[in-house]
Every structure is written in C-alpha cells, then in structure tokens.
Amino acid sequence: THFTSQQLQELEATFQRNHYPDMSTREEIAVWTNLTEARVRVWFKNRRAKWR
C-alpha cells in the first residue's frame, strides 16, 4: 500500500503519542486518513518493528 504524505503525517503523529493505539483509536485514524482499520493496524505493527 502506498500512503500519501498526509496519511503518513497523521499516522506518524499518532505513533509519537501512542505506539499501541486501541481499536477505537485505529478506527478514528482510518476515518481521518481514508484507510481501512486493517491497513492502519498493519502500519502500526510494521512501524513498531522499525522503531525497535
């Protein structure tokens, strides 16, 4: 999946605040970024792996 810079900005900003967002937070992010909750969940999983 290719993310727009706007989507990445929103995802990264949320990641800085919370590395493990809950389901409702992921659903909110999905609405803001026009992505599915599953895409958001996978992005956070991959981002945490990169962060370690």
Rank of each mutant, 00 (worst) to 15 (best):
V31N: 12
T36W: 04
I29C: 03
D22M: 04
I29G: 01
V40Q: 00
R47A: 05
E12L: 03
R39T: 14
E27R: 14
N18L: 06
K45W: 09
A49V: 08
N34H: 10
Q16M: 10
N34E: 07
T4C: 06
Y20I: 02
I29P: 00
T25H: 07
D22W: 03
T4R: 04
T14N: 15
V31S: 12
Q7M: 08
V40H: 00
W51D: 08
A49D: 08
R41P: 00
W51H: 13
R39F: 11
L8C: 08
N46L: 13
P21R: 01
K50R: 13
E10V: 15
E37L: 05
L35D: 02
L11E: 01
E37P: 07
T25D: 08
S5N: 10
Q16R: 11
T33D: 02
N46T: 10
F3L: 14
A38Y: 14
N18V: 07
S5W: 14
N46H: 12
F15Y: 06
W32N: 15
H19G: 04
W51G: 06
V31Q: 13
E28W: 13
R48I: 06
N18T: 09
E37C: 05
E27P: 01
N18P: 00
V42G: 08
T25Y: 08
F3S: 03
A38Q: 11
A13P: 01
K50G: 07
L11Q: 00
E37Q: 06
T25M: 13
R17A: 09
S5E: 12
N34I: 05
E28F: 09
E27I: 15
L8V: 08
Q16T: 08
V40E: 00
L35W: 06
W32C: 14
N46C: 14
F44M: 04
R47D: 01
E27Y: 12
W32L: 15
Q16W: 11
R48M: 05
M23Q: 12
E28R: 13
V31G: 10
A30Q: 02
A49E: 09
K45T: 07
Q16E: 09
E12M: 03
A30E: 02
R39L: 15
E37D: 03
R52S: 08
T25A: 11
A49Y: 08
Y20P: 01
A13R: 13
S5L: 13
L35G: 03
P21H: 02
L35I: 06
R52Y: 12
R52G: 07
E37H: 04
T36Y: 03
M23I: 10
L35E: 03
R52M: 10
T25F: 07
N34A: 07
E27Q: 14
V40Y: 00
S5M: 12
R26L: 09
H2T: 10
A30R: 01
E28A: 14
H2V: 11
H2C: 14
F3G: 01
I29H: 00
Y20N: 06
R41S: 08
T36V: 04
E12F: 04
H19N: 06
T4W: 05
N46P: 00
P21F: 03
T14V: 15
Q7I: 08
R52V: 09
V31C: 14
T1W: 13
R48P: 00
R48T: 03
L8P: 00
T33F: 14
A49P: 02
R26Q: 03
S5Y: 13
Q9F: 11
Y20R: 05
T14S: 15
S24H: 12
H2R: 14
Q6C: 11
R41Y: 07
E37V: 06
H2M: 11
E12C: 06
F15H: 01
Q6T: 09
E28L: 14
K50V: 12
Q6S: 10
L11P: 01
T25K: 09
E27H: 13
L8N: 06
L8K: 07
T25G: 05
P21S: 02
S24C: 11
R39Q: 15
A38I: 12
F3I: 11
W32A: 15
F15P: 01
H2F: 11
N34G: 15
R52I: 10
Y20C: 10
Q6Y: 13
R17Y: 09
Q6V: 10
T14E: 14
R41I: 05
T1E: 12
E28S: 10
T4G: 04
N34W: 04
Y20A: 04
H2S: 12
R47H: 02
N18R: 03
N46A: 12
T14Y: 15
W43F: 02
I29M: 04
R47C: 04
F44K: 00
T25E: 13
P21M: 03
R48C: 01
D22C: 05
A30D: 01
K50E: 14
E27G: 06
E28Y: 09
T33S: 06
A38W: 12
H19A: 07
R47Q: 04
D22R: 06
R52N: 09
T33V: 11
R47F: 03
V42Q: 14
Y20G: 01
F44H: 00
L8D: 05
E28K: 14
N46Q: 13
L35H: 04
R47I: 02
V40F: 01
T1I: 11
A49S: 07
S5F: 13
S5K: 14
T4S: 09
V42T: 13
A38L: 14
L8M: 07
V42M: 14
T36L: 04
A38K: 13
E10H: 15
Q16V: 08
N18E: 06
M23P: 06
T14A: 15
K45C: 10
R47E: 03
M23F: 14
A13I: 10
A49G: 06
R41H: 07
I29F: 03
F15E: 00
N46S: 08
N18G: 05
H19P: 12
W32T: 14
F3E: 03
K50M: 11
E37K: 04
L11F: 02
A13G: 06
T1R: 12
W32M: 15
Q7N: 04
K50I: 13
R52C: 10
T36R: 02
A49M: 09
R26N: 02
T25P: 00
L11I: 02
N46R: 14
Q7C: 05
R17V: 10
Q9Y: 12
E12I: 04
T4H: 04
R47V: 02
K45E: 09
T14C: 15
R26W: 05
R52F: 12
D22T: 11
L8S: 06
V42L: 14
S5V: 13
T1L: 12
V40S: 00
E10L: 15
H19V: 05
T4E: 04
M23A: 09
Y20T: 05
W32F: 13
A30M: 03
W43N: 00
L8G: 02
Y20F: 12
L8I: 11
M23L: 14
T25R: 09
T36I: 05
E27L: 14
Q16F: 07
N34P: 01
V31D: 08
Y20W: 12
A13C: 13
A30S: 05
F3P: 05
Q7Y: 04
I29K: 01
P21Q: 02
N46I: 13
Q16P: 03
W32Q: 15
N34D: 09
S24T: 12
H2Y: 12
V40C: 02
E28H: 09
Q6A: 12
F44D: 00
P21Y: 02
W43G: 00
Q16L: 11
H19R: 11
Q7E: 04
K45N: 07
R39E: 15
E28C: 13
F15D: 00
